[in-house]
Design a protein around this nucleic acid. Structure first.
Lengths: 205, 205
DNA sequence: TAGGGATATCTAACATAATTAGGATATTAG
DNA sequence: CTAATATCCTAATTATGTTAGATATCCCTA
């Protein structure tokens, strides 16, 4: 206890205020929308002046990037990893998680999965955090015997469409649970049926 | 020719520069992204100073609103109205149109169907222009014998999800045509099968 | 315990944005 | 020809992100 180097003390404190800034940023963004992040207001709520933030973050985009990384970390940590016995149920579980995660925090959803902030693109490191989720989807589909290369894309499209629907029409409601089960079952039925069919007819071009 | 009232002449000219401003706004937005609409630049390209725009539009949001209304008008005018013989083909046609329309102009799509501009919401009048499209979807689904109240929402979700996929992964490509046909067939199969089933089991809560 | 270097924060200023106020100039109407 | 009006301008206001440079605060060493 006594021999904690002062240098670490300082680094600790620095990380603490960095986190405090990020928390305040989330609060502001949740209250007024993702785009409404004012450095002046942000600095004021943490008891600073605006330029002082620049010793913690290089720019406003850097703050968004840190928020992105934080959200992505939350995403991968909350993602269900144990697959239930019924593979179809596993797919449903995944989509329920995804839509539920997004609906729980609209601002976070917009930051992570829609690109709605003018010049902002997440950095490679931040983006890498959430990589691998798509592979998990592919694994669960394979467990259901679905191997069509287009299937992941179609499935993703359904998932994001449902999320959109949920967030724009009925945020906070739970009607989407019914829709998810329907959609996943529909998807599963169709893909298994299609897999049994001959070569699969292709559209001429 | 000679007896055109000067007053009409003026109104005509006024409408012309209004249209010119809107055209320049579209060009700017298509070139640099939907959010990158600068009144100064906009004014410069039409040979004005920024404040002069305010005699044509009340604010920047008013410009976005006019663009929205214009895009919505394009949408309803281009929407296929004659239903083909095969009702399933009618559904496919509608989704193909929708995704194609959106993919043809990403900026217009973002303005109309995603809410990506900070404080902007289309006015009631502008929004009303595109109303009624959903009903048309419902009609075509009814022609297929699909009457489930959730079906329209699920269908819409699939459509927007596909559009998203198309625009973010393969803008300009035509892979989505295959995906659309797949998705619509899948949807149709499932809904008709479901309609034949007994009361339909509901999830307990 | 006094001084020097790093650290944290500040104030002042700049560039750009949308927007408002008020004046100058041309066009129209009586 | 004169008065009104429409059209555009310049100048100023407010708010933004950001930079430059100064000032205080802390920590380690002599």
């Amino acid at each position: 206890m006594l021999d904690i180097p002062k240098r670490d003390r300082r680094a600790e404190r620095r990380a603490a205020t960095r986190a405090e800034i990020l928390d305040a940023a989330w609060a502001q963004v949740r209250a007024n929308g993702l785009a409404a992040l004012s450095l002046r207001d942000l600095a004021r709520t943490v008891g600073m002046q605006a330029p002082s933030l620049y010793s913690y973050f290089d720019s406003k985009h850097a703050i968004y990037d840190a928020m992105y990384a934080q959200g992505a970390r939350q995403f991968v940590e909350a993602e269900p990893s144990d697959q239930p016995g019924d593979p179809l149920e596993g797919l449903k579980q995944l989509v329920r998680f995804y839509v539920g995660f997004c609906a729980a925090d609209a601002a976070r959803y917009l930051l992570l999965f829609q690109r709605t902030i003018p010049g902002f693109e997440p950095s490679a490191e931040s983006f890498a955090i959430s990589e691998g989720s798509l592979e998990r989807v592919g694994q669960r589909m394979a467990a259901c015997g679905i191997t069509d290369p287009d299937a992941v894309d179609l499935f993703t499209a359904i998932g994001t469409g449902l999320t959109d629907q949920q967030l724009s029409n009925d945020p906070g409601g739970d009607r989407w649970i019914r829709l998810i089960d329907d959609a996943v079952e529909m998807f599963h039925d169709y893909m298994t049926k299609k897999a049994k069919q001959p070569p699969a007819r292709r559209r001429a071009r």
